[in-house]
Nucleic acid binder design. Structure first.
Lengths: 249, 249
DNA sequence: CGATCTGTTGACGGCAGTCAAGTCAAGTGG
DNA sequence: CCACTTGACTTGACTGCCGTCAACAGATCG
C-alpha cells in the first residue's frame, strides 16, 4: 500500500515524516506549505497515551497545545460534588488546548489509544503569527467545535433519554462511516465500536448509566440497532434512528 | 459627559466614526490599526433591531457576519416538535455569524434593542486574509465562546433546576458588574435588569417557565435575591448564590 | 476460587414537567 | 370610567420520566 519513496528508515520514528502523516492534509497541518511544515516538524513532538491516561488535568495553568493524530480524546468538566459532564470528544484532526492564555478547569483524558502531535506553547504561538493561513484554519476548526457544542446543548437541554442515546449512536455511525463511501446511497450497514463505558456515555449524555442501559436495550428490542458483545453496535434502521434522534439534517 | 472633539455633526449618523465606537478597543476591532479601520469602516454598515426582531433565521444559507455594538443577541436552536433551546447569548463585542461557509440551522434574534455593525460577507473574508491580527483575534473570541458553551453543557447536563437559575443570575450579576469596579472588594449590591421573559430564561436553562418561576421564588424566600418588579433582580447574598450555583472560580 | 469491574434489569421515589387556575398590569373600545 | 381582552407571571395539584438503590449476570484476573 505505502509507496516507499524514502530509501531511509522505514519504521515510523518518534516524529515520523509529516508528509506521510495521516493528518497531513487535514486540520491545522493542511494550512501549511512544505517550508512551514519543516518548521512545524522541528518543534513538534509525538506522544502516545493509553486509554484512561490523563493528558492534562487541573485548571490547566500548564499551557498545552497538540493535534490529535489517532484515537479519541475526552474532555470532562466537574462539579464540586463529583458530578461530571463530558463536554467534548476530540477525533483526528481536532486540537487539544488553546492558544492565548488560560482556559477553565478541564480534564483532558485519552478515551482510546491516542497519539498526539504536541507543540511547545511559545513555538506554536509564534507559528500562529508567522504562518498566515494557520490561525484561519484553526478558527475554522474552532467554529466547527462551537457548532457541535451548541448542538449538544440542545440535546442536553431538551431531548429525552431515548432521543439522547439515539443521537449519540447516529453521530458515531455517521462519523465512522467511510468518508469516501457512497453519499447515503446504499443501506450502509453502519457498524462501529464504541470505546466508552456505559458510565462515560452517561456522562456525555447527561444521564445515569442505568438509564443509558435501558434505552440501549429499548432500541435493541425495537430492532433499530443490534449489539454484538457489549461495545460493538450495528445500526439496522438508520432512518428510524434519525427520526428518534430528531436530527434536522 | 461626551467630550465633543468633533466640530462636525454631533448626532450619531449611520456609520458614526469607528474611533468613537464603544467597541473600538474591544473584540475584533481592537485587532485593527487606524488604516485597517478605515477599510473596515467603508465596508461596514450599522443596523438596529427592536426586541424580538429576527436577525437571521432558517438554515442560514444567507451568509452573514456582524459585531454586536449594543444590546443582547439570542441564538436559538429548534427541535422538529417545537422544543427549543437557547444556545448562546451574545453581548458586545461578540460576533454573529461565521466566516468559512455554512453553519447549522439557527435563529438569531434580538433580545433587547440591538445595534449591529454588519459586514458584507466577501469583504470580511478579504479583511480576514489581509489583516494579520484579525483572524487571531476572532479565534480568541471564538475560543471564549466555546469555553462558555462547554460550561453551559455542564449546567444543562448535570445541574438541578435551582442550581441552573442560580448560575444564570450569578453570570448576569457578574457580567453587569461595572468593569472598572473594585475586584470583589465591597459587598457589591449587584442589581440588574434581565430583559428575557420567563419562557426565554427557561429555554436558556433547559427548563419549563413554571419551574423557573418556582426556583426564582425559592431564592427570594431564602433571602438570596430580591425582585423589584418582574425583571429587576438584586443579589443580596452573592456568596450563597455562588455556592448554590456550584461555580468553581 | 473469590475479587473486581462492567453491564443489565427491577422496584421505588423524587424532581421537574404538565395541566390548570388565578393574579397583576397594560391596552382597547364602548 | 368600566368591562373586557391579552400577555406575562405565579402558584397549586398531579403525573411521569429518570435517578437511586439494589440484586444479579458475565468477564477478567490474580
Amino acid at each position: 500500500m505505502m509507496t516507499a519513496m524514502s530509501t531511509e528508515t522505514d519504521h515510523v520514528c518518534d516524529l515520523g515524516r509529516c508528509e506521510a502523516c495521516v493528518i497531513r492534509h487535514k486540520g491545522i497541518c493542511n494550512a501549511l506549505n512544505a517550508d512551514e511544515l519543516q518548521v512545524f516538524r522541528q518543534i513538534a513532538c509525538r506522544r502516545v497515551y493509553a486509554p484512561g491516561d490523563v493528558i492534562v488535568s487541573g485548571d490547566s495553568s500548564e499551557v498545552f497545545f497538540a493535534a490529535v493524530v489517532t484515537g479519541v480524546v475526552k474532555l470532562t468538566k466537574l462539579l464540586s460534588d463529583g458530578r461530571q459532564q463530558i463536554v467534548g470528544l476530540l477525533f483526528p484532526p481536532d486540537c487539544v488546548g488553546r492558544p492565548f492564555g488560560k482556559a477553565g478547569p478541564h480534564i483532558v483524558e485519552a478515551a482510546t489509544d491516542v497519539e498526539l502531535c504536541c507543540f511547545p506553547y511559545g513555538g506554536f504561538q509564534r507559528m500562529l503569527t508567522d504562518c498566515s493561513g494557520l490561525s484561519q484554519r484553526l478558527l475554522g476548526l474552532t467554529l466547527d467545535q462551537l457548532e457541535e457544542a451548541r448542538d449538544w446543548m440542545v440535546l442536553l437541554g431538551r431531548k429525552t433519554a431515548l432521543e439522547r442515546v439515539a443521537s449519540l449512536l447516529l453521530m458515531l455511525a455517521t462519523r465512522s462511516a467511510v468518508p469516501g463511501g457512497s453519499p447515503d446511497a446504499g443501506p450502509q450497514p453502519a457498524s462501529f465500536e464504541l470505546h466508552l463505558r456505559r458510565a462515560e456515555i452517561a456522562d456525555f449524555l447527561g444521564l445515569t448509566y442505568e438509564t443509558v442501559c435501558r434505552q440501549i436495550s429499548a432500541l435493541g428490542k425495537d430492532g433499530v440497532i443490534r449489539l454484538d458483545g457489549k461495545r460493538h453496535f450495528q445500526v439496522l434502521d438508520r432512518r428510524a434512528l434519525a427520526e428518534i434522534a430528531d436530527v434536522c439534517p
